[in-house]
């Protein structure tokens, strides 16, 4: 048993789960399958790095400002682009495509920002790798534990609890649930559905940004890191069923574990399997959809 692998898989699964929760939240609330998620993750990743390079200190300090900025991106996306389309009852495909356009715009601007630091300040920013700067917290039987191994799972759990409390205990959260479950009825009862959607996109953006921000301490990346991981985030949220945020989190965890731990153990028997590691979660996604078209959560609901 490799403790290093286990720790790493837990960390990775937590980071994925946070991002999957974002996709699920946005899909349940506004019917938008958010393609812009990819660049939102990349922005979270790079903002953290840029703040860290500018102001120094611990990279973890910049998780908050980075994710809030990405949250504001989400709000802008909703207000400028999606609101009109959602009101005119555009199809899911139209909504998906328009977020793809948003994704390209975000991606273009991110790269311009990167080039700005690259040309003018000669930062080595095209590929970012600050993993070795992550502080060492201790050693368990030979396996070093770095801060991200602790921070990422704790953040994921904190988010799960916070969302649970928010949705079930606060009046704003209840209003949100109401407008997710039945927007027409919610509007009749006087809930401002539009405001709720703005809030959903803010939270969705924050979660995507947070997921990207945590990746900064976990792995090397470049401007398309979000794009590379996007399919895994999609896989996680769809395996989780796209209907409950808890499902999204669980789907993310499942995908993360299967990609890392499963490939590791399979590699004992099938050499070279690790090259195909991305195919495993995707195959899971396809299988899930074909067997249970509503995802795992659908399966749970039905029982």
């Amino acid at each position: 048993m490799s403790i290093v692998m286990l720790l790493s898989a837990i960390t990775y699964a937590s980071i994925l789960a946070i991002g999957c929760a974002s996709i699920t939240l946005l899909y349940t609330s506004t019917r938008v399958f958010n393609f812009a998620h990819a660049s939102m993750v990349s922005w979270g990743f790079y903002l953290t790095f840029i703040f860290y390079n500018l102001f120094g200190g611990s990279p973890y300090t910049y998780m908050v400002p980075a994710s809030i900025i990405v949250g504001l991106f989400g709000v802008l996306t909703y207000l400028l682009v999606l609101r009109k389309l959602i009101r005119s009852k555009a199809s899911e495909i139209t909504l998906m495509m328009v977020t793809l356009g948003v994704d390209f715009v975000f991606f273009g601007f991110l790269n311009i920002l990167i080039d700005y630091f690259w040309y003018n300040y000669k930062w080595s920013i095209k590929t970012v790798n600050i993993v070795p700067r992550d502080p060492l917290l201790g050693v368990i039987s030979g396996a070093p534990i770095t801060a991200v191994n602790v921070v990422a799972p704790l953040t994921a759990i904190a988010i799960l609890m916070a969302l649970h409390v928010f949705l079930s205990r606060t009046s704003l959260g209840m209003a949100m649930r109401a407008s997710i479950e039945n927007p027409v009825l919610a509007a009749i009862t006087g809930i401002n559905v539009d405001k709720i959607y703005v809030l959903a996109w803010f939270i969705g953006g924050v979660l995507a940004g947070l997921s990207g921000s945590l990746l900064t301490m976990y792995t090397q990346g470049y401007s398309a890191i979000g794009l590379d991981y996007a399919v895994l985030y999609f896989a996680g949220s769809i395996v989780g069923g796209l209907y409950s945020i808890l499902g999204g989190l669980l789907g993310g965890v499942l995908v993360g574990f299967s990609e890392r731990l499963l490939t590791y153990y399979l590699s004992f028997y099938i050499s070279g399997i690790y090259a195909f590691r991305f195919a495993i979660p995707l195959a899971m996604l396809i299988a899930t959809l074909i067997i249970y078209p509503k995802g795992l959560a659908g399966l749970v609901e039905r029982r």
Partner: peptide, 9 residues
């Protein structure tokens, strides 16, 4: 990228 994105939007 930005132009193509804006065109889509």
């Amino acid at each position: 990228y930005i132009i193509i994105g804006l065109i889509i939007i």
